[in-house]
Amino acid sequence: MNTAAAIDSRHAAGQRLRERMFSAATFVAAVLVLTLLGGVALTLLHGAWPALAHFKLRFLTSEVWNPVTDQFGALAAVYGTLVTSLIALAIAIPVSLGIAIFLTELAPAWLKRPVGIAIELLAAVPSIIFGIWGLFVLAPILQRHVQPWLIDTLGPLPIVGRLFQGPPFGIGILTAGIVLAIMVVPFVSAVARDVFETVPDVLKESGYGLGATTWEVIWQVVVPYARTGMIGGIMLGLGRALGETMAVTFVIGNAHRIGSSLLAPGTTISAAIANEFTEAVGDLYTSSLVALGALLFLITFAVIAAARLMLLRLERRALSSV
């Protein structure tokens, strides 16, 4: 039958089929995103299981990392990961805040865009570049000039001094923290900038109207309002710092040791995996490295999930207060 109605219904059937296929395809792709996360978690756990079953809780509390006696403990790597990230944040938070303040409040219009773009370009530079720059440019400067000065001036101090002992190697935990800070600044400042811009002008105007200086408006009106978002941004930066591999591997010193001095070499989870994975002999060694990866996944997942939740709340608040 070739009446108009028949053609129409055949046409409609074809359209319906294509509709079903297309919507199914998008649905499958979307669910794939979920399965990716689940898959990563499961695969890591599966690979880590031999090591975790063998060492049990000792894996988290032992500093020993000896491939020959097959004794592996994650403590040194976890310590290094946490300390380098903390140093990175300690440096990056004030700098990012400063950049965000400068770009949103101080900079004249013609300066805003180029400077903003320049800071974002820093985020586009791949991490391996930071690594080689850190090793070949930053480390010698630190070893010859900065670290001896730190040892001489801060070393003798009573409590703080413990952090600055030891020979100046140039590389080590402090250097890794500094390189991480430079990498994290673009992210935190970008979030801070976005968050500062959500502050309603009316609040700022009220502050100025009462006679507050620019700094007072920022510190007492803008920052408290943007607090949740800022913390979210900081935690995103933390998540980035915790998982960073290449920038750290070059300058951390590859020592599975915990030292009290920031000038000592150490290791982080991702640096240990990057350096040792392809040459790990033995199933327990490989499994221990995957277990380190699973640990990192857990830590970063917790941090990033918390950060995203905070940013979500801020978005909702911004939308509702429009």
């Binding site: 995103v33 990716l36 996360l37 990563v40 890591l44 995103l236 998540g239 980035r240 915790l242 998982g243 960073e244 591999t245 991702s270 995996i273 990057a274 990866g293 990192l296 996944f297 970063t300 997942f301 990033i304 999930a305 950060a307 995203r308």
Partner: peptide, 9 residues
Amino acid sequence: VLLSAPSII
């Protein structure tokens, strides 16, 4: 979360 996850994972 995946967007910010460490690439070594």
